[in-house]
Design a protein around this nucleic acid. Structure first.
Length: 748
RNA sequence: UGGGGGAUCGUCUAAUGGCAGGACGACGGAUUCUGAUUCCGUCUAUCAAGGUUCGAAUCCUUGUCCCCCAGCCA
């Protein structure tokens, strides 16, 4: 099972019986567009963790904006999530289904003086909000009475006011450094028809109000969303608290997916659709689920892709090559092979009798454990691909050339005897001979024929439409330098015709094939009986094409410039830090730390007052105590200066190694008493006796012969690992310095 | 600029003070009736500078760079 920081967190919550160990997630799309591969990441995460932890995942339409939403999208979303293989059971919800409850909560907020109706217009509100660096000002309407607000809000609902004339705002803090908390609007007037609630409402809740409350009402335990909602989390928590919701959901953010050569924002995708740059949301060039489906991607491939990219918080742009890799991997095992010729070149086999042979050809290569075959009609005239012939080939070309042999897949070995050209000098036909002793492609004399190419019988070939899809954009990060629409790939769709073997005649929509040596294809819904149309899902890897392309041009890969290290600025100490340095004799770093963290300084001074060893105590307090305090999200260390002083003495007098000192410190944070008690209780002591340490080292060396070999081979880092092992072997008691010396001596 | 988040091979992602690992990619080789698949090998990384430590990607300090927030969108 995949592991990531979210799953780790949920596992810890389950372990600690938070929410009684239950897990309930949700996937909350707004039905204002189609789902894309970025949503697939979220879907796989939300439904995935629910399944892994025995919980549920709800599907919720986050429909709070009647202006942009449409039932077509609701249907498409459900279709896509289902197709991806996920099941929400009875748990299909709509934010619009909570409008009554949300309204009640809004009134509750008003009654609790946590919300007010504000008549500022948009421009004024923006001005009052302040900027990133300046605090906002309170709205003149902020102090309306509860009765006034209730009256106004009810009249908003009753439709007495024009759109934009007023909003309901949360009353939080106009000076908050978090812009989201500067009295955000939570209800606005929209005299719009809603696709589900019709004209029942003319006020609609905003995301920050509706989303967290929906989560809470549904009993969502973990509300997983993307990083851009990070600063909204404080508001999320505020609303749940202010509304006095009995169920507290927790929001956690992860990085959204970006893909190279792709745009992912709904706005841009909508622009592509509405501007007719593509043929709708399910255009196979679109990164939408519907587009990928039509392109021939499988849900399994998409799921695998989502597993491989992982979940983290880094801003990330995944290489499109990975998506292509997973779909090839999946399709390789499930696509029967057929023969198709893209650029037909006529081949006449002069010594072949005027007859038709039906050859049996397996659908699958040796390494795919599937069975089945079809018959391939073979005749005197066949087509091969023009790229499989070269009149003057380089020596590493092992297809057809004058006087050379090549194998026709599943058929015969042929030899090129003559090249026929037209008046312009173009090759228009090849005259070949065949070796009758090679039926089925097997040479009777065992001679090697290195090239094998695909072909179709001229008289039997089916002429079909193929749609050759390629990446939609020519730049890795469309839109970074100029408008993304200027970076579209003019060859993202090439409609062409191919000669394919006759067995494809009855292919129907969604049948998948590998056209050998060409690519993976899927029959499109536009297929007609007897006239299938194929979409190319992805081309096969082609190392020959790559090799030949290299001769032509070697495009230097532009890598992003490494961040230049600027010369370290010799930062001066603040007056306070300088004073500390002078009076306590601590180092500059320590002085700086103490000047910033008063509780650290306080602890240090208290330790000194109790007879602590200055140097040791300072290092302890600045490097380790501070780290622990932060890691445990504490205000200050949970022990006294006296206890720290004791610890510093134990370390300074050699009773404890500094490593042991840190272990004891951790125990002090765990509330296991003072250092002396801990040392006594746990029997911690330091072994400095060289003979004893040598014995330990010998044991470790004997037990880790391979590691020793790696060290001798030059991997000096192994030394650290061996020290670690030996430390463990000694029960953590060996003096690390001595141990290190002994180990070095033994290994030398 | 106030606040929040992030920085590990070209890309994505592991490593909770002890051998920087995996995948994609790139490059090379073997096998092959698909120049595919498969297999093998090679390549490349801890943002910087200090500090603590026997030992730091990880703890501390100071910097640098990137992203998000100023919708009555979500």
């Amino acid at each position: 099972m995949a592991s990531d920081f979210i799953r780790d967190m949920i596992a810890a919550d389950v372990e600690s019986k938070k929410h009684n160990g239950k897990v309930c997630t949700r996937f909350p799309p707004e039905p204002n567009g189609y789902l894309h591969i970025g949503h697939a990441k979220s879907i796989c995460l939300n439904f995935g963790v629910a399944k892994e932890f025995g919980g549920k995942c709800h599907l919720r339409m986050d429909d709070t904006n009647p202006a942009t939403e449409d039932p077509e999208y609701v249907d498409a979303i459900q279709r896509d999530v289902k197709w991806l293989g996920f099941d929400w059971g009875d748990n299909l919800f709509y934010a619009s289904g909570y409008y009554d409850k949300l309204y009640e909560i809004a009134e509750r907020l008003i009654r609790n003086r946590r919300a007010y109706v504000c008549d500022l217009n948009e421009e004024q509100m923006s001005a009052y909000r302040g900027t990133l660096s300046e605090p906002g000002k309170n709205s003149p309407f902020r102090n309306r009475t509860v009765d006034q607000n209730l009256d106004l809000f009810r009249r908003m609902r009753a439709g007495e006011f024009k759109e934009g004339s007023c909003v309901l705002r949360a009353k939080i803090d106009m000076t908050s450094p978090n812009m989201k908390l500067r009295d955000p609007a939570i209800y606005r007037i929209k005299h719009a028809h809603h696709y589900r609630t019709g004209d029942a409402w003319c006020i609609y809740p905003l995301y920050d109000f509706a989303h967290c409350l929906s989560d809470s009402m549904e009993g969502i335990t973990h509300s997983l969303c993307t990083m851009e909602f990070e600063s909204a989390r404080e508001l999320y928590d505020w609303v749940i608290a202010a509304a006095e919701m009995p169920w507290v959901s927790r929001q956690t953010e992860f990085a959204r997916l970006n893909l190279t050569y792709t745009v992912m924002s709904k706005r841009k995708l909508l622009e592509l659709v509405e501007g007719k740059f593509v043929n709708g949301w399910d255009d196979p060039r679109m990164p939408t689920i519907a587009g990928l489906r039509r392109r021939g991607y499988t849900p399994e491939a998409i799921f695998e892709f989502c597993n491989r990219i992982g979940i983290a918080k880094n801003l990330s742009t995944v290489d499109l090559a990975l998506l292509e890799f997973v779909v090839r991997e999946d399709l390789n095992a499930r696509s029967p092979r057929i023969l198709a010729v893209h650029k037909p070149l006529k081949v006449v086999i002069d010594n072949y009798p005027d007859q038709i042979e039906n050859l049996d050809a397996p659908y699958w290569p040796q390494d795919v454990p599937n069975e089945g075959s079809r018959t391939l009609p073979f005749s005197r005239e066949v087509y091969i691909d023009a790229d499989d012939f070269m009149e003057a080939p380089p020596k590493d070309f092992y297809r057809l050339a004058p006087g050379r042999e090549v194998r026709l897949r599943h058929a015969y070995v042929i030899k090129c005897e003559r090249v026929i050209k037209n008046a312009e000098g173009d090759v228009v036909e090849l005259r070949c001979s065949y070796d009758p002793q090679t039926r089925g492609g097997v040479t009777a004399d065992g001679r090697k024929v290195s090239g094998t190419i695909q072909w179709v019988s001229a008289a039997h070939a089916l002429d079909v439409e193929v749609r050759l899809y390629d990446r939609l954009f020519v730049t890795e990060r469309p839109g970074e330098e100029r408008d993304f629409k200027e970076e579209m790939n003019p060859e993202s769709l090439v409609v062409a015709r191919m000669k394919v073997e006759p067995s494809l005649k009855n292919a129907t929509a969604n049948d998948r094939f590998q056209f050998e040596r060409v690519g993976f294809f899927i029959a499109d819904a536009d297929s007609k009986p007897g006239a299938p149309v194929f979409n190319r899902t992805v081309a096969l890897k082609d190392s020959w094409a790559k090799q030949t392309a290299k001769h032509v041009q070697s495009a230097p890969k532009t890598s992003k410039p490494k961040i230049e290290a600027k010369a370290a600025v010799a930062t001066e100490l603040s007056a306070e830090a300088q004073a500390l340095k002078d009076c306590h004799g601590v180092s500059s770093e320590e002085a700086r730390t103490m000047a910033i963290e008063p509780h650290i300084l306080e602890l240090f001074e208290a330790a000194l007052a109790s007879g602590g060893v200055a140097k040791t105590a300072a290092a302890l307090v600045c490097n380790d105590v501070l780290g622990e305090v932060r890691a445990r999200k504490l205000e200050r260390a949970p022990f006294s200066g006296k206890e720290l002083a004791d610890l510093s003495q134990l370390i300074a007098d050699g009773t404890l190694s500094s490593k042991q000192g840190k272990d004891v410190l951790a125990k002090m944070f765990d509330g296991e008493g003072g250092p002396k008690d801990i040392v006594k209780k746990l029997g911690i002591s330091q072994v400095t006796d060289v003979a004893a340490i040598e014995a330990v080292v010998d044991r470790v060396l004997a037990a880790n012969v391979d590691a020793v070999a790696r060290f001798r081979a030059g991997n000096t880092n192994v030394l650290g690992a061996l020290v670690g092992l030996a430390m463990k072997e000694s029960g953590g008691k060996a003096n690390p310095k001595t141990l290190n010396e002994v180990l070095r001596k033994k290994l030398a």
